[in-house]
Amino acid sequence: MMIHLVTGGSGSGKSSYAEEQIVKENRRYDAPFFYVATMIPRGEETKEKIKRHQMQRLDLGFLTVEKYVDLEELKIPDNAGILLECISNLTANELYREDKQSERGGKEESDSGEVSSGAYDRAYRAVVNGALKLSRQTEHLVIVTNEVHSDVNGYSRETENYRKLLGKINCELAKKADQVTEVVYGIPMEIKR
């Protein structure tokens, strides 16, 4: 159960790099690779894009499982590696999920649309524990996350809080990971091994 965390900016090539890691390390095993998709398909364009990517990954030997929230519940059968993509979606899904609205309560929040600290803690635990649970079901887990922290742009307080939560989750996952890589323009920079 080796955990490899892959980070980088948008369009940095981190997804392809992550796929490659799973495929090249585990080709010798019979079992399939699993791809855990976290992006909620909204709109026809997204659905088509998702389908296209699923077909591409099928050629590489990946079976796709969709899991948008409650990652801890996910049971993956015998496998030769799992790719979880990506933590930034999963974090947003957990933070803004509608079935846990009661936890977003409080009168202050209803005015600003902001999320309560209870919801942040819950989202933090759901993502971190979910990823760790996944790591116990495989010999090789590659986790893709996103670097959205090196900017200043007058973000709303809510967006700033999301950035803070994602930063905290990334630090925790990096601590638990055996290997951490930042992909810069397609070039892997090893920051922990």
Binding site: G9, S150, D151, V152, N153, G154
Partner: peptide
């Protein structure tokens, strides 16, 4: 903090900062 990796802000002060 590194703060220069995003879109150039619309606000003039933020741009200069």
């Amino acid at each position: 903090d590194e703060i220069g990796y995003g879109i150039v802000p619309v606000d003039r002060f933020e741009r200069e900062y």
